[in-house]
Design a protein around this nucleic acid. Structure first.
Lengths: 118, 118
DNA sequence: CCGGATCCCTTGCGATACTG
DNA sequence: CAGTATCGCAAGGGATCCGG
């Protein structure tokens, strides 16, 4: 966990790795969407729309598509009437749980640090 | 690490925590700046400017100020000629190392998953 | 060297309405 | 219900110049 100086080459790989991660998680909504799906394991479009306060259906649709392209979520059309669509994390998507969890913990710590109470 | 359904109240606190963390780490550059400072422990303005490829001095200045307000970094003016300014993580800022580290690991994993090689 | 001020442009995102 | 299409705005951010 220490950040001591290392060889330049490793450093570049690290930077690239952070960059790769950021590319996927960018935008205003991705983390919240993943967090929502992750919390319930499976979640329908309209449910996510409610979970993620403030998002529009256009944005949700766009973000979900990007997440799917990056193989983080799996999209399943259920043959109900009317049709519903279910989203769930892929195995690869599940590896994000650690990050979400860290982020949550850190957010709580930060709130105490800055605001002074939880 | 599992994401099983929990009581609504905990869920709301979780969401708020993620939100708090995102507020601080938002924008295009924060993570990279922190990553740069973290890697070297102490880092001068112009050095960070080089580390973070593509950032303008205006942006760097703005982002550093925000990070300082959130008590993640400490700013020190060195009385050299001309003046240089040094930035380092505060104790609180150092708690972000876990997240950066996880993000790095995940980025590498993701690259293998999507591109297929590192 | 640090970083503020100005100008300007791009694009992310919201609102709304519409289709299968 | 899930998703698409169109319009339009405002914030974010780049380029450049300036001052301490």
């Amino acid at each position: 966990m220490e950040c001591k100086p290392e060889f330049q080459d490793d450093r570049k790989k690290e930077m690239r790795a952070v960059h790769d991660a950021m590319d996927v998680l960018n935008g205003k909504w991705k983390i919240y969407i993943i967090s929502s799906i992750c919390h319930y394991n499976k979640r329908r479009f309209s449910d996510i729309l409610e979970d993620v306060v403030g998002i529009s259906n256009k944005m949700l649709s766009k973000e979900l598509k990007e997440l799917e392209i990056n193989k983080l979520i799996k999209r399943t059309v259920l043959e109900t009437q009317p049709i519903t669509v279910q989203y769930e994390l892929t195995e690869h998507g599940k590896t994000l749980k650690t990050i979400i969890s860290n982020l949550t913990d850190w957010g709580m710590k930060h709130r105490k640090e800055i605001i002074g109470k939880d």
